Computed example of a mutant assay.
Amino acid sequence: SLKPAPAPVTATQPAPAYDTIIPERPPLDPRYTFDRFVVDASNKVAFNAAKVLAEPGPVRFSPLFLHSNTGQGKTHLMHAIGHAFLAANPHAVVLCMSAERFMYDFVAAMRARDTHAFKRRLRGADLLLIDDLQFIAGKDATQEEFFHTINEIMTAGKRLVISADRCPQALEGVESRIISRMAVGLVADIKAPDLLLRRTILDRKLVDLPDLRVPTDVLDLIASRIHANIRELEGALNRVIAYAQLTGETIDLEFAIATLGEVLRGAQKRVTIDEIQKLVTAHFELKPLDMISARRARAVARPRQIAMYLAKRLTTRSLPEIGRKFGGRDHSTVIHAVRKITELRDQDRDIDAAVRVLMRELEG
């Protein structure tokens, strides 16, 4: 039965003490908890940092800045932090919103001439979760308020978690003082899931559906062909399951291919080594011959290694085939290039950003 709404607090009716009520819960997705997050090398640092930030006791770092491409687990980790923090601190004030919502609420408060209430609400949070920071780019008034909000949260020793689709330094249109504050805490990225992780995620999802049987070859098909992000991966599995339940048909490979026809075709953009070399030379302002030349100057060698890395990641060509396309180089040279760029992506934000841009353009 519906309960009557609580009476509004008035001047003659003092507000209850903090420890006598449980504040209204933030809109956290119940599915997004730490125990449902599949961990591997691509997201382990972000996962461990999120768990540490959610622990009760003194704040070890703040803010935590999470960044990755769309649909790779940022929002899941943010909600998991909220769930874990509230489980340990039931009376805490937790606010979770997108940067777009922050902007909308701030503009509404200005129009209503009531920015004081807006500021009091946000700065009173024990844990503030802001998703998709890139949406405030270029919004000067919003950024001004955002800066003062995060500054007060951090100065008060409270917890702050922010996510975006790129690292702080790559956020164009965001004030340098905000980026500087982000760098004070911990910045953790989540890389694209590899085949093994994608397959594990599908297995984990099926744990919640014990009465449903999805053959191994169907799961392998989805994991191998849907690689853009986890959201699309889970969506493809959900589609197969829903269609089977609606039609009463048995799930097998033929049914999955028929059901996911356009999804599989859309995910199957074939990237060639020639396309990779052309895009890399344009990006780094090199000559096409630099991809196959013997020049070892870093300005040429590093982009060439990036092109080899992308060829290994985005094509089905063998190592010897890739080597031949780069001036007849040995397969061991390709292995070295792949290892070197993998290592540099963790150490050099410029190289990581360049690789991300190139991969987005190639996978289109």
Rank of each mutant, 00 (worst) to 15 (best):
T10I: 01
T10V: 00
A11E: 01
A11W: 08
A11T: 00
A11Q: 01
T12E: 07
T12W: 08
Q13A: 09
Q13C: 06
Q13T: 02
Q13R: 08
P14D: 03
P14V: 03
A15W: 02
A15M: 04
P16L: 07
A17V: 05
Y18K: 07
Y18P: 14
Y18E: 12
D19A: 10
D19F: 11
D19W: 11
T20S: 12
T20C: 15
T20E: 07
I21G: 05
P23S: 08
P23E: 05
E24M: 14
R25H: 13
P26K: 03
L28N: 00
L28E: 00
D29E: 13
P30F: 09
P30D: 02
T33G: 04
F34S: 00
F34L: 03
R36D: 04
R36E: 05
F37H: 02
F37D: 01
V38D: 04
V38M: 04
V38A: 03
V38N: 03
V39H: 00
D40Q: 09
D40T: 00
D40A: 13
D40H: 04
A41F: 13
S42W: 15
S42R: 10
N43V: 12
N43H: 11
K44T: 10
A46H: 06
A46D: 06
F47N: 12
F47Q: 09
F47S: 13
F47R: 03
N48V: 09
A49R: 03
A49L: 12
A49C: 14
K51W: 07
K51C: 13
K51S: 13
V52K: 03
A54V: 06
E55T: 09
E55F: 14
P56S: 15
P56L: 14
P56H: 13
P58Q: 11
P58Y: 07
P58G: 14
P58I: 00
V59I: 08
